[in-house]
Simulated scan of single mutants.
Amino acid sequence: MHKQLMKGNEAIVRSAILAGCRGFYGYPITPASEITEAAALYMPQVGGVFLQAESEVAAINMLYGASSAGIRCMTASSGPGISLMQEGISYMAGAELPCVIADITRGGPGLGNIASEQSDYHQVVKGGGNGNYRTLVLAPYSAQEMAGLTTLAFELADRYRNPVVILADGFVGQMMEPVEFEETAILPQLPEWAVAGTAESRPNMITSLHMGIDDLEAHVNALEAKYRLAEQRETRAEHWYTEDAEIVLVGYGIVGRILKAVTAEARAMGIKVGLLRPITLYPFPSTDFRRLAVHAHSFVVVEMSNGQLVEDVRLALNGKRPVEFLNRMGGMSLRMKRS
């Protein structure tokens, strides 16, 4: 294997193709547009389909159709576009359709601006659509993780038959870094549940509609059992100098990289600081926090939003330790000084 210099956004597409993705349906939006551009370039080269939809609403519904036919597929957008996709995401979760959605976050609310932020946390981690469902959410902090977590995203989407979101801030999507890819590619295969236009698949039914109240309750309970299983098996987090940490810094995405530098500086000064970086935002690594609370006396959550991740940290700790909160918004870097 050799490394290639590229943006995190492009790394997503290359990794998706190696993971067997053969359908991309999307609409360009800053700071995610390079994903759509790369998909337009690479998908046809491997016999896949690229289609620029007329809107994000159309894109997510095209994803519904492609996934129903058993195609590994994905889309990409940013805050306002992800908002428009929420109904379709709910439909796909309800119909148990796998797909991957890259959300390269910009400032909000509304149109906000095109600067990097982390304000989509609640929208994707808590679910912005109707009904009782969840999306699995992965949070890369480098171009290399954009590639590696994309591979994982497709594996999880198929394993749990559920939408998986790659949540990355604009910094991670736009920065260029050396990226190493898997040497082998996954060949696309139709799952047995797909509606593939064959006699064998004719009995298959893809829907999120359950008119009977007992039927819907049973279906939602089945979804809940699936999510509980994911919570037991799929949580991921990076620990850095946490073994003896008295103060634990918490951040994901680009913030996690900044906090590594802060941790190193604090350690050099003799302060017992460590970093816990959640990689799965759902399922959330609550157990990691509870374990660290045995010896850490405080936690400091840092994020580029108005305080969204911090709520899950406080829930995980359940009052066992104090949780402090630091933030910047509007696209402000954490190293920018207030005027």
Rank of each mutant, 00 (worst) to 15 (best):
G110F: 07
G127I: 00
T207R: 05
R314N: 02
G307S: 04
F181L: 14
A296E: 04
L334H: 13
A11W: 06
P109S: 09
T242D: 03
M332D: 15
T36D: 09
A266E: 15
L63Y: 03
F171N: 12
N221L: 15
I114C: 06
G331E: 01
T184D: 11
F24A: 07
R314I: 01
V125T: 08
K7E: 07
G256Q: 03
S15M: 09
G20N: 06
V124Q: 00
A153V: 07
G88M: 14
R14H: 10
Y121A: 00
S77M: 15
V57M: 11
D215K: 02
L317E: 06
A95Q: 10
G47P: 07
Y141L: 01
Y42T: 05
L190W: 06
G81A: 02
V179E: 09
Y241F: 12
A157F: 04
E231I: 00
Q174V: 05
A59E: 04
K272E: 13
K260P: 03
V302M: 04
L326S: 05
L276P: 06
R321V: 12
I254L: 08
R228G: 00
P31F: 02
P283S: 03
A53L: 14
I254H: 14
S68T: 09
I104D: 10
V302D: 01
R72H: 13
V164P: 04
H239I: 00
A157P: 05
N130S: 13
R257Q: 13
G108N: 02
S298Q: 10
Q4F: 15
Q189K: 14
M205F: 15
R277A: 04
D158R: 13
Y227S: 01
G212S: 07
L275F: 05
V301Q: 03
R335H: 10
S339T: 09
S142K: 03
W193L: 10
T151C: 14
